[in-house]
């Protein structure tokens, strides 16, 4: 198709990528189609559902409305970048345990929105969680298990961060 090609340098999940792609591709399309990072989902491509949410320098943005050429030099995090090797992020662990992922399609977006929230507020109230996740639609869970999972992860992360605090996932594993 007509249009320009451009050369992109994108930093995604801590890895530097260089690629050439059509200049009118969104970040969502580049992630899924050029980088093979299909964990980022799409439900509308118009900014109306939150399924494609990723973090840019830790801030939630919708990849379906983001242009990659404006994000060069920034740190992009997708769901593939949440776990530390085989070690799940506490949010992933909590989502899995509490059934916060049913069909799992909206889950990557929720996980990343929640990660950004916990970075800003380590012990958010239920209301703060609701507000922070109000840009992500879920049709399976009714959101309640998602709220509970964020709360559980927050408690565990607080426990891990405070020596002598709450039992943490890390100490339990020993």
């Amino acid at each position: 198709m007509p249009g320009e090609y451009l050369h992109l340098r994108l930093r995604v999940n801590g890895e530097q990528h260089q690629l050439a792609c059509a200049s009118h591709k969104t970040l969502l399309e580049v992630l899924r189609e050029d980088l093979g990072l299909t964990g980022t989902k799409h439900g509308c491509e118009l900014g109306e559902c939150g399924a494609c949410l990723v973090l840019v320098d830790g801030t939630p943005v919708l990849s379906c409305l983001a242009l990659p050429q404006e994000l060069q030099g920034r740190e992009i995090t997708t769901v593939e970048g949440l776990a530390d090797g085989p070690r799940l992020h506490p949010l992933q662990q909590a989502f899995a345990e509490l059934g916060a992922a049913q069909c799992g399609y909206c889950t990557p977006g929720f996980l990343l929105a929640a990660k950004a929230l916990l970075a800003e507020q380590p012990a958010p109230s239920r209301e703060a969680i609701r507000q922070a996740l109000a840009g992500n639609l879920c049709r399976c869970t009714g959101y309640l298990k998602i709220f509970e999972a964020v709360e559980l992860a927050a408690r565990r992360m607080a426990g891990a961060a405070t020596p002598g605090g709450q039992r943490s996932a890390a100490t339990e594993a020993k």
């Binding site: 299909t38 769901v79 776990a83 992933q92 662990q93």
Partner: peptide
């Protein structure tokens, strides 16, 4: 299948 879902 939970782990597959939360890891994308």
């Amino acid at each position: 299948d939970a782990l597959a879902k939360v890891t994308g």
